[in-house]
């Protein structure tokens, strides 16, 4: 299980920590390890940026696990943003057989009460991040 480097308490008191996670770092992890890595960071108040995003199945499980962790006055869930894809993501059986890679999409995830999306289009995500 890969974890983020520990930060000394107090070190981020006047700022917001941003974890930029490369595709290579995520590659060797199982789906659940990826979700844990993301949610552990977000629950600490960090903004997590994934270079290559998650698969649809992992996104589905991320929503499900997030829901089980929501707790009143403590954790309200996540805000997640990726570039919207034009033309859909549907891939046929042939595409999957010949191994066409799924589109990599930069993904930003943060605590729902700290990140607000200001603008999003196919090329730009603009978000406002606030401290806790």
């Amino acid at each position: 299980m890969t974890t983020m480097p520990e930060v000394t308490p107090g070190e981020t008191d006047d700022g917001v920590q941003i974890d930029l996670i490369s595709g290579a770092r995520m590659e060797g992890l199982t789906g659940m390890e990826k979700i844990r890595l993301i949610l552990d960071g977000v629950r600490e108040g960090n903004i997590v940026v994934l270079e290559e995003g998650l698969s649809p199945d992992e996104e589905s499980k991320l929503i499900e696990v997030t829901m089980t962790e929501i707790s009143p006055d403590e954790f309200n869930g996540i805000e997640i943003e990726t570039y919207p894809q034009s033309g859909g993501t549907k891939k046929g059986l042939i595409d999957r057989l010949i191994g066409t890679p799924s589109p990599k999409k930069l993904t930003v995830i943060g605590p729902a009460n700290q990140i607000e999306t200001l603008h999003k289009d196919e090329n730009l995500i603009s978000a406002l991040v606030s401290r806790k």
């Binding site: 649809p56 996104e59 805000e79 919207p84 894809q85 859909g88 993501t89």
Partner: peptide, 16 residues
Amino acid sequence: PFTQVNTMLIGIIESQ
């Protein structure tokens, strides 16, 4: 309609 939840859900449905 261009929300993240809609984009993700449609992607999940398509992947299934």
